[in-house]
């Protein structure tokens, strides 16, 4: 009986497996005209509204802190126009699509002797965060 050469077979199996792994690793980005892109975009816009409303310190409801110099007023806000979205196909059965949103949050501060003067500003940017949030599509909803 002729001995089978296992090396090519092993080599082929490894190559195929590696290829599969690579595919799973890359999570391809969907085109912007894909319906899920628009779907996620709407979700992301809505999320930005929710986040802006619930920050600990908003333009409407400053976070006031008393300190040795008086008061500091602070608020956070997502920089308008900073939102960018991507939808990716993962190759996974449990979460075949993920949505990635990128936005910038700026924190503004004002200092003053009393809380009233702090509220009137001027406010200076003191912190800038480029934020990434990642969501999965579950039964038509982004979670």
């Amino acid at each position: 009986m002729r001995k089978l050469s296992f090396f090519p077979i092993i080599f082929l199996c490894v190559t195929l497996h590696a290829g599969t792994l690579a595919q799973a690793e890359q999570a391809s980005i969907l085109n912007s005209d894909h319906h899920l892109h628009g779907h996620f975009g709407e979700f992301a816009q809505n999320r930005v509204s929710i986040l802006n409303k619930h920050y600990d310190g908003t333009p409407e409801k400053l976070r006031l802190e008393k300190n040795e110099n008086g008061y500091t007023g602070r608020y956070q806000q997502i920089v308008p126009g900073s939102l960018r979205v991507e939808v990716k196909q993962t190759g996974s059965n449990t979460s075949p699509f993920i949505g990635v949103m990128y936005y910038t949050v700026m924190t503004y501060e004002s200092n003053g002797k009393c809380s009233e003067s702090v509220s009137s500003g001027p406010f200076q940017p003191v912190r800038k965060r480029n934020v990434t949030e990642i969501f999965r599509l579950v039964r038509g909803e982004w979670k």
Binding site: T104, P125, V126, R127, K128, R129, T132, E133
Partner: peptide, 15 residues
């Protein structure tokens, strides 16, 4: 002059 702070890069998971 308004000097923007250096940006921090962060991935946030609230979900």
């Amino acid at each position: 002059p308004v000097v923007e702070p250096e940006p921090e890069e962060v991935i946030v998971f609230s979900n």
